[in-house]
């Protein structure tokens, strides 16, 4: 039995290594090669290390476009998450605490947000009508809308574990409804909020397709879209492309490594009592 467990463990580690680590090593090695050498896409040690030069070149490419992209992606991520946390917690709170006939309808919309796939063309049409197409603000709203369903569900499940007595004690202490929420409930939501921030920031920061559709224009570039800088129909600079991938992947990876324990805690903390 013990031997079998050991074998299964070793096998899973080997699979995880092949699936997750080898591609990363491949990206890392190729990011350090010269253009000619990386074009062959071999899994080999670089003959000449050009790691630093490639890095500088990627950052400087197209008038420091990568830095602009970092800035844009950060603004979108922070904006969308701030909006998502505040509105998701509020909606989850009301859905859990206030029993009205509207709840079913609102809950239906929340689930619809999770189930129904987003339609790109009508969304662009709508954005054009309200003048938010090709704007960072519009992108923030879209990212917030995409993540809101999941966020509301998480918050609602967690708020169910907070005793209603706390709300009532605060009301007796003279708290207005918004004070009950911001001074008593919201501070207690920290574990879920960390989960939401980490999960959604990785998703939004790494998003490629949505900024591609809704945010055209060189000044609106986001990090994932900078990958197009080095891949075109005629010329592909594989070494720089890989360096770019490396630079774009690292920040979310760091976030995940540091917070993965809280993510799991926050996901399951609402699970016992729903």
């Amino acid at each position: 039995m013990k031997r079998r467990q050991y074998l299964i463990g070793a096998l899973s580690l080997a699979v995880a290594f092949v699936v997750f680590v080898i591609p990363f090593i491949f990206v890392f090695l190729n990011a350090a090669k010269t253009a000619a050498e990386s074009a062959t896409l071999d899994f080999s040690w670089p003959r000449e290390w050009r790691f630093w030069q490639n890095l500088v070149e990627v950052v400087q490419a197209r008038d420091y476009m990568l830095l602009l992209a970092y800035f844009n992606s950060t603004v979108i991520t922070v904006g969308a998450i701030a909006l998502m946390v505040v509105s998701g917690a509020m909606v989850g709170y009301l859905l859990q605490r206030r029993r009205t006939p509207w709840n079913r309808i609102i809950y239906g919309f929340v689930l619809a947000g999770l189930i129904i796939p987003p339609a790109v063309v009508p969304t662009i049409w709508l954005l054009q009508q309200i003048g938010l197409f090709k704007s960072i603000t519009g992108m923030i709203f879209i990212q917030c809308a995409y993540g809101l369903g999941f966020t509301v569900l998480l918050y609602r499940a967690f708020i169910a574990t907070i005793p209603r007595d706390l709300d009532e004690a605060a009301i007796i202490d003279g708290a207005k409804p918004w004070q009950v929420f911001f001074k008593v409930i919201l501070p207690l939501l920290k574990p879920v909020t960390v989960t939401v921030i980490v999960v959604q920031s990785i998703t939004i920061f790494n998003d490629f397709t949505h900024p591609l559709y809704y945010l055209p224009g060189a000044e609106n570039v986001t990090v994932q879209l900078t990958l197009y800088n080095f891949q075109s129909q005629f010329v592909s600079q594989m070494n720089l492309l890989f360096m770019n991938i490396l630079l774009v992947t690292v920040p979310p990876l760091i976030v995940f490594v540091f917070f993965n324990r809280q993510i799991v805690a926050g996901m399951t903390s609402g699970a016992v009592k729903g």
Partner: peptide, 18 residues
């Protein structure tokens, strides 16, 4: 409730944990 001049002690104490 706050305007009634009352205070209440709950069965669960309902202390603010944070």
């Amino acid at each position: 409730p706050a305007e009634r001049g009352i205070a209440m002690v709950f069965q669960s104490y309902a202390l603010y944990p944070h």
